[in-house]
């Protein structure tokens, strides 16, 4: 579904992501972890085509098509979606954006009903008349951002730290929704800083660890307990230099 080959990403004359190769098949969930500043968010934004990041080298293949040079909205229309880590505050009401997204991505009446239920379940109803992300709590931002992504019905979902700064009950709820997406066939690349969400996910196919812009580990999740206990350096036997 999503193939990234030898991707190098830069911004403002600096290379941030180096030689990343990764394949995400249908309905797979991959975790992407790594220390602060490793380039995880940059990788996700570059896959989505956002500025100021430019692809210096390598290609992004989505559903068999080279999307490396497409605009973000062209990628989104093809089924690629990003739940932003820090979405900006918008001058429009949250409910209005949801309505426009639902129109854009086409939903049946049943599916609209499910979305309305989900809004209630996530405790977001009171935010619909508020400007998007203005005066939202950290948890509300994460929940709302995942909600917009679900309304997009993506084939590939890029989730940038959906579990940061939120309480355990919310993490459990978001993990359930992410697992549901995967079960329905969406492929997910999930950036997590703490890894707390992992124990609530129904399955994880692969773990990637990134440091200094490179993937230094791509494999099973069995190393995760060791990483959480000892840190990347010791658990993976890495050197802390570039």
């Amino acid at each position: 579904m999503l193939e990234i080959k030898d991707l190098n990403v830069g911004a403002e004359g600096r290379t941030i992501v180096r030689g990343v190769t990764l394949t995400l098949r249908n309905g797979e969930l991959h975790l992407l972890m790594g220390p602060n500043g490793a380039g995880k968010s940059t990788l996700l934004k570059a896959i989505m085509g956002l500025s100021p990041y430019e692809i210096i080298k390598g290609i992004i293949i989505f559903n068999g098509e080279d999307v490396t040079n497409l605009k973000p909205y062209e990628r989104a229309k093809r089924g690629l979606a990003l739940a932003h880590q820090y979405p900006p505050k918008l001058k429009i009401r949250s409910g209005y954006l949801l309505k426009r997204l639902a129109n854009k991505y086409g939903h049946s009446n049943d599916s609209l009903r499910e979305i309305r239920e989900l809004i209630k379940e996530l405790g977001l109803s009171h935010l619909l008349n508020r400007e998007l992300y203005r005066d939202f709590s950290g948890g509300e931002v994460k929940k709302f951002e995942l909600l917009t992504l679900i309304v997009q019905k993506p084939k590939v979902a890029l989730l940038d730290e959906p579990d940061s700064g939120i309480d355990l009950d919310s993490i459990r709820k978001l993990a359930y929704l992410i697992s549901k997406l995967v079960e329905e066939g969406t492929s997910v690349l999930l950036v997590t800083h703490t890894g707390h969400i992992v124990k609530y996910l129904h399955k994880v196919n692969k773990l990637h660890v990134m440091t200094y812009g490179r993937l230094v580990y791509s494999g099973g999740v069995d190393v995760l307990p060791a990483i959480l206990e000892k840190g990347y350096h010791e658990a993976l036997g890495m050197r802390w230099d570039n």
Partner: peptide, 26 residues
Amino acid sequence: EELEYLMSKGFSEDEAISLVVRGFLE
């Protein structure tokens, strides 16, 4: 940032501007 956010959600630049304008007036 607003425009790019909306573009990442599937709206072209023109659509994103009218969406913000329309939403702003709503």
